[in-house]
Amino acid sequence: MTPNQAPDGHDEPHAGGLGTRLNWLRAAVLGANDGVVSTAGLVVGVAGATGSRSALLTAGLAGLLAGSMSMAAGEYVSVSTQRDSEKAALATERRELRDDPEAELVELTALLEGKGLSHPLAREAARQLTERDALRAHAEVELGIDPDGLTDPWHAAGASFLAFTAGALLPLLAIALPPSAYRLLVTVVAVLVALTVTGWWSARLGGAPAVPAVLRNAGGGALAMGVTYAAGTLLGAAGV
């Protein structure tokens, strides 16, 4: 039976791979949520100052592009830094395995003992793991890194860009498409529904209670729209 296979012969998802997929999905939900809130606050604020459809579209598109590019650039830099650190750690581990394999075997044995195995069992497990793939064994047990699963910064940047854009399109379309008399109402309702959904999903993915997460998410979005609308209204009345 392989390490990732259930007793009945069916493959089970690797814990690390599952955790990575959940992290990606959680990041996508949060990115979409950011797109909804930031763009909604922007277009509602502009709506408080002017009813011009072209002004609303211009502001919304500018916010969408600026936000999505900022998210993508930030994610690219962050993931690139993490990837460089992981590659450096793997290079160090590879050198240590080449220069002093016995000391690395002792170290792996101690790490497995720290996870609850007896010394004889830990020693045998360390020996077998080292014979199979020494670098992978040390990377996963000692460093918590999957050597074949390093995150691609371009993928991360693209995912952040798409998630933010998808979220930002909702308030942009909601404020621009309806007749002027219903723009604000349609936008507020659409945004609150979207924030309810993303709040529920983020809680579900994190294993947290859904109701507090939904209330925080929708409440924060409502507050952001209220503040920006009031600011826009005041600035519009002042002729700024």
Rank of each mutant, 00 (worst) to 15 (best):
58 T>N: 08
89 A>V: 02
48 G>L: 05
40 A>T: 02
55 A>N: 01
28 A>T: 11
62 A>G: 14
58 T>C: 03
78 S>V: 00
84 D>P: 07
60 G>V: 03
85 S>F: 02
31 G>F: 09
50 T>E: 13
80 S>T: 13
32 A>W: 12
45 G>W: 01
23 N>H: 05
38 S>W: 01
29 V>Y: 07
50 T>P: 04
28 A>I: 11
85 S>T: 03
34 D>P: 03
75 E>D: 10
36 V>H: 04
65 L>R: 06
25 L>Q: 13
37 V>W: 01
64 L>E: 07
48 G>A: 05
30 L>M: 15
47 A>N: 10
24 W>V: 15
67 G>S: 04
39 T>F: 12
51 G>D: 13
60 G>I: 00
35 G>F: 10
54 S>L: 09
41 G>M: 03
56 L>H: 10
78 S>N: 14
61 L>F: 09
62 A>R: 12
36 V>T: 12
60 G>K: 04
58 T>Y: 09
90 L>S: 11
39 T>Y: 13
58 T>V: 11
90 L>C: 05
46 V>D: 06
80 S>H: 03
76 Y>G: 05
61 L>R: 12
65 L>F: 10
47 A>W: 01
80 S>P: 10
66 A>D: 12
79 V>K: 13
45 G>R: 03
61 L>A: 10
60 G>A: 13
27 A>S: 14
89 A>M: 15
65 L>I: 05
48 G>F: 07
71 M>G: 12
48 G>S: 08
42 L>P: 06
70 S>I: 11
59 A>V: 00
63 G>R: 00
27 A>P: 14
67 G>R: 12
86 E>C: 10
36 V>F: 02
69 M>N: 14
